[in-house]
Nucleic acid binder design. Sequence first.
DNA 1: TCTTGCTTTGAACATTAGTTCATGACTCGT
DNA 2: ACGAGTCATGAACTAATGTTCAAAGCAAGA
Lengths: 327, 327
Amino acid sequence: MQGNERSLAARAAWLSFIGGYTQEEIAQKLGLSRVKINRLIAEATEAGLVRVFVEGNAAECVALESRIAAHWQLDFCSVSPTVDDNALPLRTLAAAGAHYLHGVLERGEAKLIGIGHGRTLDEVVRYLPRIARPDIRFVSLLGSLTRHAAANPFDVIHRLVEVTGAECYFMPAPFFADSIADKKVLLAQKSLKDVFSLARAAELYVVGIGEVGSQAHMLATGTVTEKELREVKRAGAVGEVIGRFLDKTGKAVAAELNDRAVALKLEEIKGKSVVAIAGGANKIEAIKAVLESHVIKGLITDEATAKAIVDTLDGSDVAAGKKMAKR
Amino acid sequence: MQGNERSLAARAAWLSFIGGYTQEEIAQKLGLSRVKINRLIAEATEAGLVRVFVEGNAAECVALESRIAAHWQLDFCSVSPTVDDNALPLRTLAAAGAHYLHGVLERGEAKLIGIGHGRTLDEVVRYLPRIARPDIRFVSLLGSLTRHAAANPFDVIHRLVEVTGAECYFMPAPFFADSIADKKVLLAQKSLKDVFSLARAAELYVVGIGEVGSQAHMLATGTVTEKELREVKRAGAVGEVIGRFLDKTGKAVAAELNDRAVALKLEEIKGKSVVAIAGGANKIEAIKAVLESHVIKGLITDEATAKAIVDTLDGSDVAAGKKMAKR
DNA sequence: TCTTGCTTTGAACATTAGTTCATGACTCGT
DNA sequence: ACGAGTCATGAACTAATGTTCAAAGCAAGA
């Protein structure tokens, strides 16, 4: 679909979704057949030109939200109905995350925002509607992948720039340095130091959470090798956030890989406004680990994941006994 | 709608819009009837819980169109993406205007068409593709320039004839008479009277809009003198349409020049099908004035101009274009 | 110029969404 | 407790949307 066609598609989609006209009416207005309009709207939808947000949450989700927020002392938690049936609920997370981020941008809540990495985050940003925000700056929290791969920090932040017109800052470095010595050298670079200090100054951090398992996205993209992953796993790692692998108590594991990550240290962002967007059956342990670390202040996830997380809790800190009744 | 209901509505809307499930599927999932789901989604939409964004240049243009059309009760409004960076977006207007005019001719919507003047209109007609229409007649709405100058009504209408093979009728008179007495004499001429009555009978009027400022095209072509322009400006004029200068409320200003124009009176075309083609940074006030006069029923403009016009509006009728809920 | 294979088109059909209306459940005042 | 009115409900219907398929259009190569 090129220029003219695309423009027509956007036009038709607008008239349909915002204008509330029927396809028949639009067809007349634009002098095309109804079928053509139907196809244009389908194309526009397909191309991701149409983004829908739903405000307000289902009661069950709200219950999960408050349970999780209370248990880990979060400032906020957002749980949305799971709609995907595959392991990674990208649709839900993209919509929920984009809704959150859009709100932040719209309210101008933060002028300098740190951005993590990952497939989920990439999807979130893809779903973000265009919003002019030239006064905001985004800064990457960790090195970019050296080899080309989907959803590396560069891509995520680049798309943010496209959509908002904001300024952005990358880490001109690999995600993991080849050795601890190499990392030292990299960190000594002025260009990196500048970005690091900018990242430290961010008012809000939006991060993804990685799992440690055969499905790990980092493995698929070649960011880490199987050997490296096995190693951190042996050290007890069950999850990852901004390049740091954590054990189930939320502590960074003692593995060389953790020291080779070109990224902010967790201590540097702890206590600040950090929001994680993550979900999926494989990530339950990882998300719990990150929650345990108390690095994050907000969590955006899906209902199935939230339920799984809550189910592993004992009933100690809630009056949540009633949800058992169903089924 | 209270708590529980609202929560269900949110879930249903989420499953529908984000999940892409059919209402039937959602009904099964939630154990409710399809009709109930339909109502829940309608309620959620009604309550403004669902926000839809359509990306793309064209979508933004459509938004501007409906906003402008609603605010000034136009029958239609066409906003095209601005491509020119100079003050007068001739390319855009020419293409959009030609597209409109071509459609009118092709559909044979009007057999007798009144034509105004101006550089924009000239450009529109230059851009018009050849289309045989010997059954259509064009009639000039105002006097031709006496001295040779670009884009006088003669040229515009002459080109129309070339392109369509239509018949045409000029005003054999200057654009402005030298005095009110002279104008009387001119109007008394049989040849002029005939054209005037033809002009009054036109089914469609296509006009340009002139600005009142140092860049005014009329000044450059010598149609009006600096002194005359200064005078109407002092009387409050901010825009011009078929030789009449209007103040910002859309009323013709009290200036002698206005009474010397050899052209139809605005009252004579008001209520009829009048379409203006105009755009450009300098013309914003002029276009607003003409819109305020409610003489025109249609406007063809460019995105930048439309945005500027809309920006001066308060948010009172934002929901424009949204079809009102049926009773 | 004539295939050949691909793309685009819209009429006809299939599915999904939206509306209406009769019904019964419920509320509230007496 | 009893009726008058209100409200929610879903079967049945209508409107809108989505899909299929045969035919037309079109471009590239022989």
